[in-house]
């Protein structure tokens, strides 16, 4: 399926490609530095003694202890995880199936449907937030986790769909046919042949959906209640009284936990083998 370059084939190529490859790797390293520069600053400032997030005034690890003691903040972080997790799963489901069907079939209104899918991406968050709230209020649906998740899936599944569609373009149609010729139903063919092939795009889409949901403020504000308030709601609300390095500490913990999880889960997999 996704044929990869083996080291052997790479060696046979002229040295020009090696030069190009190392230029590209150097560039990638630079871009990674760009992405992580503010993160390094952010982590450094989580050890800042000053209550204000702005000027450096000495080292302390106290903010990490204060995060641990701040119940509402931890609760908001937990809510963010729940909302981002559930809405990512739903977005991946909706986006992947949607992309496949829009790719696989031609039908009247397909282009209209495709345009409609892109509309949530262009809809300013404030419009989506207020209009969803009016909608929920009109039909008598209460605010809270389900309302927030509906909002989040609506703006994040198009990102999955677009990413998956890009991968589908130029996919060999013979693959699915071959599967069906071997007696698979279209559903089996989709699940056993197409989905594994789409995996890189699905992973990319899921990462985008999670990220969008994790840090979304405005749609969340209009659809949440006290119990489902997410981290961004807490953080932006604190602007009135001043942000403090506790938030840096929380961000640092989350980043380190993610990176540790990624490498640790790999290690566990290796042990299992």
């Amino acid at each position: 399926m996704s044929a990869t370059l083996t080291p052997a084939s790479r060696r046979r190529w002229p040295s020009g490609i090696q030069l190009l490859d190392s230029t590209l790797s150097g560039w990638t390293a630079l871009v990674m530095l760009f992405l992580y520069l503010p993160i390094l600053v952010l982590v450094a400032y989580s050890f800042n003694r000053s209550r204000l997030n702005i000027v450096w005034s000495g080292f302390t690890a106290d903010w990490y202890r204060r995060v641990w003691e701040n119940g509402p903040l931890l609760r908001a972080a937990q809510n963010s995880l729940v909302v981002a997790g559930v809405s990512t799963l739903l977005s991946v489901l909706l986006g992947t199936v949607g992309a496949w069907l829009l790719h696989r079939y031609r039908f009247r209104g397909a282009r209209g449907l495709q345009t409609l899918v892109a509309v949530p991406m262009v809809m300013p968050e404030i419009l989506m937030g207020i209009s969803l709230l009016i909608l929920f209020a009109t039909v008598g649906m209460g605010l809270g986790f389900s309302a927030v998740i509906i909002g989040h899936v609506t703006f994040s599944f198009p990102f999955v769909l677009v990413a998956v569609q890009a991968r589908l373009k130029g996919l060999d149609p013979a693959m699915e046919e071959a599967a069906q010729d071997l007696g698979a139903t279209p559903l089996q063919a989709f699940w056993l042949v197409i989905v594994p092939c789409l995996r890189p795009a699905i992973v990319a889409g899921a990462l985008m959906a999670f990220t969008l949901s994790w840090d979304e403020l405005i749609v969340t504000f209009f659809t949440t209640n006290a119990a489902s308030a997410t981290l961004p709601i807490r953080v932006f609300g604190m602007a009135k009284v001043g942000l403090n390095p506790m938030l840096n500490a929380l961000s640092a913990i989350f980043i380190l936990a993610t990176i540790a999880f990624v490498f640790f889960s790999d290690y566990v997999k290796k042990l299992g083998r």
Binding site: Q78, N79, V86, L89, F145, S228
Partner: peptide, 14 residues
Amino acid sequence: LILPALLALAIGAG
């Protein structure tokens, strides 16, 4: 395992 766990969290929290 993730989906049921998340759903349980969501219900518990609400």
